[in-house]
Design a protein around this nucleic acid. Structure first.
Lengths: 137, 137
DNA sequence: TATTATATTGTAATTATTACAAATTAGAAA
DNA sequence: TTTCTAATTTGTAATAATTACAATATAATA
């Protein structure tokens, strides 16, 4: 069941540890762009000796290798995304949910031609989501 | 000299205070997307009794009224921009500079049609800037 | 000029993240 | 399988950004 994640780590020459596997599994199964604290709190249930520093370290390592990506959409805390392909995000200021927006960025080529070397592309929209709009208030 | 900023505040029915004027002036004259601390440190030179909380409050008020915008590009701290029209930004991971990228976002209409209400649009690119590329290393 | 709601100040609290040393462990080599 | 070592995990302490809040001061109105 964890084979998928073992493979991911080995392909990237990253040592396979239970903490890294569980972190990956959590991100894969929770596509809600969780915070470090959300990941930590959940995983600590099953592994009480888990340290939050380990979560920080694991996420950093996974990100460095391009396996996952981090979002700076909220401004106050980092959020993580198992999906590592470029896509956009919508943050609802009302309910706090972060919604995936699957659109291409047609501007990347312009940037590439500008002489800068692009490693990350982030498209963030912020406002009130469809659901919250319907609810009114 | 500060008339420009007085006008901006009055147009938005915001009380005119020296702190707000100086904050606006600083942002207008420093298009480097400064942090709260940078703004505070600089303005404190001329006004030693200035409180950092005031800078936070002023920036929040100005942002609420759409006079300035905040950037969450770095993830660890907010940055502020006098330019309030939609444009993109490039963060160089080497030198830390944030460069304005004047491109349109052709995707906004897609989002608007999706049922979400969009208040902010952020386009962030991260990597190594032209200058740092030339320097090598 | 007097009044009042709002803004500023200063301090303390909160929250996210990083630093770091000691203990543990994954994976290579014997 | 056992040993070894570099890398990882853990736990605590430190740092940094932001927010809360009460007391004081001030802008703008009457």
């Amino acid at each position: 069941m964890l084979e998928k994640y073992v493979k991911l780590l080995k392909e990237n020459s990253i040592k396979v540890t239970p903490q890294r596997l569980e972190t990956l599994k959590y991100l894969d199964e929770n596509r809600t762009h969780p915070t470090v604290d959300e990941i930590y709190s959940e995983l600590k249930e099953k592994n009480p000796s888990l340290s939050k520093t380990t979560i920080y370290n694991s996420l950093e390592t996974l990100k460095e290798h391009g396996i996952i990506q981090s979002l700076t959409i909220s401004g106050t805390e980092l959020r993580y995304d198992f999906e590592n392909k470029i896509h956009h995000h919508f943050l609802c200021k009302k309910c706090g949910n972060i919604i995936d927006i699957d659109i291409e960025c047609p501007n990347i080529n312009k940037i590439l031609n500008s002489g800068h070397e692009v490693e990350e592309v982030h498209g963030y929209f912020k406002g009130k989501c469809k659901k919250c709009m319907k609810k009114g208030s």
